[in-house]
Amino acid sequence: MSLRTRFTEELKAAMRAGDSARVSTLRMITAKLKDTDIAARKAPTDPGVSEEQIVAMLRAMAKSRAESVALYRQGNREELAAKEEAEIAVIESFLPQQLDEAAMAAAIDAAVAETGAASIKDMGKVMAALKAKHAAVLDMAKAGPMVKARLGG
């Protein structure tokens, strides 16, 4: 089932269940998806953005909310932080499961071997290989420092 279909089905289910917080977040996701589709449209017949682009959009939404949570906590606004964390939980329910530390290290080792990387100068090649194979399940922000350490940087 595509993410677009899941958004619609989950929105209907949340509306039936009377879960107003989930309904609100799902509506926000679908609105953002429409905006993303419109921005990416080249012709009126375009089907919209790909699943990978939807996942990237969801990751950006979750990251933005995580930053807001930190700011709300600094300002002692716990009720707003809790609302943002609830939104993050809904958004993350649509994201693929991330690789754990061991799996990430194995993927980095494989990418280093595949690219023949020998020094920190080859970091870009390794990151490109990781992104090509594991973009959906690998947190590139965590992978960067691990690749750097692996290459002796």
Rank of each mutant, 00 (worst) to 15 (best):
M1T: 09
S2K: 05
R4H: 11
R4V: 10
T5E: 14
R6E: 09
E9H: 11
E9L: 14
K12S: 08
K12F: 07
A14E: 07
A14I: 04
M15K: 15
M15R: 15
D19L: 01
D19F: 01
R22V: 11
V23I: 05
S24D: 01
T25I: 02
R27L: 11
M28P: 00
I29H: 04
I29N: 03
T30V: 10
T30D: 13
T30G: 03
A31T: 12
A31E: 12
A31Q: 14
K34M: 11
I38H: 11
A40E: 05
A40Q: 05
K42E: 15
K42N: 13
K42H: 11
A43D: 13
A43M: 11
P44E: 08
T45N: 04
T45F: 14
T45S: 13
T45C: 00
D46T: 11
P47N: 08
P47K: 14
V49L: 12
E51V: 10
E51F: 08
Q53M: 13
I54C: 02
V55C: 07
V55Q: 09
V55K: 08
A56F: 09
L58Y: 04
R59C: 07
K63Y: 14
R65V: 00
A66C: 02
A66N: 11
E67A: 10
E67L: 05
E67W: 00
S68H: 09
V69P: 01
A70W: 00
A70D: 10
A70N: 10
L71C: 00
Y72I: 00
R73H: 02
Q74N: 13
N76E: 15
N76G: 00
E79D: 15
E79S: 15
E79V: 07
L80H: 09
A82S: 14
A82I: 10
K83F: 03
K83D: 14
E84M: 10
E84F: 06
E87C: 13
I88T: 06
I88A: 07
A89N: 13
A89P: 05
V90P: 02
V90W: 08
V90R: 06
V90M: 05
I91K: 04
I91P: 02
F94K: 04
P96T: 03
P96E: 07
P96A: 03
Q98S: 10
D100P: 01
D100A: 03
D100R: 08
A102Q: 12
A103W: 02
A103K: 13
M104Y: 00
A105F: 00
A105H: 10
A107R: 09
D109C: 01
A110D: 12
A110S: 11
A111K: 05
A111Q: 06
A113N: 13
E114L: 06
T115R: 08
T115P: 03
G116L: 08
A117E: 02
I120R: 10
I120S: 13
I120Y: 09
K121E: 15
G124P: 05
V126E: 02
M127D: 06
A128W: 00
A129C: 09
A132K: 11
K133V: 04
H134E: 05
L138S: 07
M140S: 10
A141Q: 13
A143P: 07
P145W: 05
P145H: 06
M146P: 03
V147A: 08
L151M: 06
L151E: 07
L151W: 03
G152N: 07
G152Q: 06
